[in-house]
Every structure is written in structure tokens, then in C-alpha cells.
């Protein structure tokens, strides 16, 4: 909990575009990103954004497609706050926070009811129309909380998806009329296919404190803002999912400004993330 004076000090700093750690309002904290950190997954990433630390693992499994989208696969997003992050995240409070983070992440990736138009093209996960498909489970574990957990989760998810490889599958057509087509999953990792992720966004959380708009809040700053918008932005600057949080209203002028900030900051953030992913992949290839 912050005292009134500390809150005032932080808000004044934001108004003058100089925050406690010297950043401007549109500056992200130093980002550390590694991919391929978990062996037993199809794709994984670990992100440190300031003090916030998140690990994301992507696993795939064979499943039955939904009847509304018979040629598309399925995607499930889950976020868990580890008790390592603090005793206040044990039990109901932690699971409620995790559930709301997962919903916001899922919204940024959401596809239409036919499986198309999502951040990840779910039709790439289809195997046999109407019968079999890949189900992708994106699980995030938050290890340390120092503000802006949602952005960190979204960056880690983006990196993990970029790292994801689907096992190669060969389908042998059924011989007789009543036989099912046969599926053969190739165990060879070098034969796996990388998932295409050009449209995966990053969530930029823009918060309003008085007349200032700030991104990437650390934990103390989060207690000084009135309302926030979680805005998912693609590399091209288009908006991909928005949720508002906080108990104050946002006037329309501020709303437009906050959207503008996200569209400015987002592509730059994605550039940095892509660079990290590329250099991570390069390091992995060197090691091979």
C-alpha cells in the first residue's frame, strides 16, 4: 500500500514525463526474452520485463474439431500465478487474477466461429476435416509480479507461439468404406513444421493517471492510476482486442489518445520482441 504522498509524487513524475526509474511515459522496461526453454513442450518462452517474470509453454494434442469449424483446430489459453510470486496469490485471489489474464490473452488471439481470422490461423491446425485436428494449449505461469503482468504474458505467449513446431502428420486414406483413415505422427523433431505467426499481437496496457498516459507500470505505479486499457496491437499497427480495467471512466478524447499511443508503441515493442526471437533461434541453431 502506498501513502498519499508517495502516490502524489509518482503521479507528478508521470505528469512531467519522468518516472521514478527515469523512464518516459511511453518507455518499456528492459526486456529479456529466451525461447525454447522447456524441453517437454512444442514451444516455449521465458520473459523478464523489469521485475515481472513469466514462462509460457505450448503443448499440442490430437482432438476433435468443433462442429462449427470442422476444418480448424482449437486453441486454449490458461494463466496461472505461481505461489512463488507471493502469498497473496494463493487460493481464490490468485486463480481469479489468472482467469482474467487468460481471458484477455484469449481475446487478443480470438478467431471467428469458423476458426478463421484469429491471431493464429486455426485452419493450419486442422488434420482431417470434421474428425481430427490439433488442439493447442498455451499455458502461462507467472513467477514474479512487478507490475504489467498482462503485457509480459502476451510477449511470452507470442514468443512461445513463434517457437512452436507441430509434429509432422501423414494421413493414409481408408482402405474399405467402413475403415477410418490412419494417422501417423512423425516423432523426428527435425521433421516438424513451424507454426506461422505473422499476426500474433502484443498487448500494450495504457493507463490513465490524471492527464498522463503511461505504459508498462511497475507495481507501485499500478496503485496510482485511475483506469487502464489493455490494447492488443499487431506489427502493422492494427488493433486486435481491447479490454478496459479500473473503476474510473475514460473520456472519449483520452480514449482516442490511448489507442493512438498503443498503435505507436506496439509495433516498436513487437520489433524488439521479434529481434529477441530471431537471435534466440540463431543461438539455438548454432548450438545444434
Amino acid at each position: 500500500m502506498l501513502s498519499q504522498h508517495e502516490r502524489h509524487y509518482i503521479q507528478q513524475g508521470m505528469a512531467q514525463n519522468v518516472r521514478n526509474d527515469g523512464r518516459t511515459c511511453e518507455h518499456y522496461r528492459p526486456l529479456k526474452l529466451e525461447v525454447g526453454v522447456l524441453n517437454m513442450t512444442s514451444g516455449s518462452a521465458r520473459v523478464k520485463l523489469g521485475g515481472t517474470e513469466v514462462v509460457v509453454g505450448v503443448k499440442v494434442d490430437i482432438a476433435t474439431p468443433s462442429p462449427d469449424a470442422p476444418d480448424a483446430g482449437l486453441a486454449y489459453y490458461d494463466v496461472e500465478i505461481s505461489p512463488l510470486a507471493g502469498p497473496e496469490y494463493l487460493g481464490y485471489a490468485g486463480s481469479e487474477l489468472g482467469a482474467s489474464l487468460a481471458q484477455r490473452l484469449a481475446r487478443s488471439m480470438q478467431a471467428g466461429s469458423d476458426g478463421r481470422g484469429g491471431a493464429v490461423d486455426l485452419t493450419a491446425l486442422g488434420i482431417i476435416k470434421g474428425k481430427t485436428c490439433w488442439a493447442m494449449y498455451v499455458d502461462a505461469l507467472v513467477i514474479r509480479v512487478d507490475g504489467n503482468v498482462l503485457d509480459a504474458v502476451s510477449i511470452a505467449a507470442k514468443a512461445a507461439l513463434a517457437d512452436t513446431k507441430l509434429p509432422s502428420i501423414s494421413v493414409t486414406e481408408a482402405e474399405g468404406e467402413d475403415d477410418e483413415p490412419e494417422l501417423e505422427v512423425d516423432d523426428d523433431p527435425s521433421a516438424s513444421v513451424r507454426l506461422e505467426t505473422p499476426s500474433v499481437p502484443c498487448i500494450v496496457t495504457v493507463s490513465q493517471a490524471g492527464r498522463s498516459y503511461v505504459v508498462d507500470l511497475c507495481e507501485e505505479e499500478e496503485q496510482c492510476v485511475d483506469a487502464s486499457l489493455h490494447i492488443a496491437v499487431t506489427a502493422q499497427g492494427s488493433l486486435r482486442g481491447i479490454t478496459k480495467q479500473g473503476s474510473s471512466g475514460i473520456d472519449l478524447g483520452s480514449l482516442q489518445e490511448m489507442l493512438g499511443i498503443a498503435q505507436r508503441v506496439g509495433p516498436k515493442l513487437i520489433q524488439v520482441v521479434d529481434q529477441h526471437i530471431a537471435s534466440g533461434a540463431a543461438t539455438a541453431q548454432e548450438e545444434d
Binding site: 481470422g117 488493433l239 481491447i242 478496459k244 473520456d251
Partner: peptide
């Protein structure tokens, strides 16, 4: 004239938004 909730899904350009 204050927005209390905004929920957006799907991809939007600024103009369409």
C-alpha cells in the same frame, strides 16, 4: 460522456474502430 467499459475482439484499423 465517460466510457466505463470497452471490449473489442477481432482485427480493426483505426478508421474502422
Amino acid at each position: 460522456n465517460l466510457v466505463t467499459q470497452l471490449v473489442v475482439t477481432g482485427e480493426w484499423s483505426s478508421a474502422q474502430m
